[in-house]
């Protein structure tokens, strides 16, 4: 039963494999280039298992200790997972003990596969979901670990490597932008960050930025709710 589910799950994860290996390797190299022990990327890819946050965590680990800001930022970056959970309530029903891991590993990619997959007749659904999640996480962990090993080979500093994070968020931002008709939220995000950066400086502007963004969204909930955002 398990083998059958694994065989059905694997082909669905192939496109994710390439992406996770690449971004995972980049992440591992970046972690090493930032001076962290080889074990960090492996551990972080296992216990955080969220790509965007792990990249941001590199910056956070390099900055002065700020637990409140870290926690709030992590919540905001990961907030989108709330909707994955809401959409998967029905599908992850009756999955038994596996549900714990399914929820733990509910990243963007596992969500998109498990939400849309047509599971063949006779394949156990809960094992199918389980293997999709597990395969995706193993690509990510293997990628990050490989990257850390490759990073250890460079005895010199890789100048400009941190730009991979900038490029990654620019691409995600652009993808999000192209899905929208109205870009008001994008402008709020960039505007609030720039204003707070000017006022509070690079080391302490994130917490005020997040408060400003959430306040604006809360204050203008009524007019904004009426807008058709998505194309």
């Amino acid at each position: 039963m398990k083998l059958r589910a694994l065989k059905a799950a694997f082909p669905n994860t192939i496109p994710i494999m390439a992406g996770f290996f690449f971004i995972g390797i980049t992440y591992g190299i970046y972690m090493r280039a930032s001076g962290f022990p080889i074990i960090y990327p492996t551990i972080m890819s296992i216990i955080i298992f969220g790509g965007s946050l792990e990249f941001v965590a590199v910056e956070m680990l390099l900055s002065p200790f700020a637990p409140v800001s870290v926690f709030m930022m992590a919540l905001l970056i990961q907030a989108r997972h709330l909707f994955y959970g809401l959409s998967m309530l029905e599908k992850y029903k009756n999955t038994g003990f596996k549900k714990l891991y399914l929820v733990y590993g509910l990243c963007d990619e596992s969500f998109s596969i498990n939400y849309t997959a047509n599971i063949p007749e006779g394949v156990d659904k809960s094992w199918f979901y389980f293997f999709v999640t597990m395969l995706n996480q193993s690509y990510w962990v293997i990628g990050a670990t490989t990257g850390a090993l490759i990073g250890s080979l460079f005895k010199f500093e890789i100048k400009g490597i941190s730009f991979v994070m900038t490029a990654m968020f620019v691409v995600i931002f652009l993808d999000q932008w192209m899905k929208e008709k109205i870009h008001i939220s994008a402008f709020i995000g960039i505007g609030a960050s720039l204003v707070c950066l000017l006022i509070f400086g690079p080391n302490s502007f994130m917490l005020p930025t997040m408060i400003v963004i959430l306040s604006i969204l809360a204050i203008f909930k009524k007019p904004f709710s009426r807008l058709e955002v998505e194309k």
């Binding site: 965007s52 968020f169 930025t209 963004i213």
Partner: peptide, 21 residues
């Protein structure tokens, strides 16, 4: 509501975060 409006703001914020220095 938050689901519709938050992601773009957060990713915009993260782009600025990357460029803070």
């Amino acid at each position: 509501y938050i689901g519709k409006f938050l992601p773009s703001a957060v990713f915009g914020m993260l782009v600025v975060y990357c460029l803070k220095d």
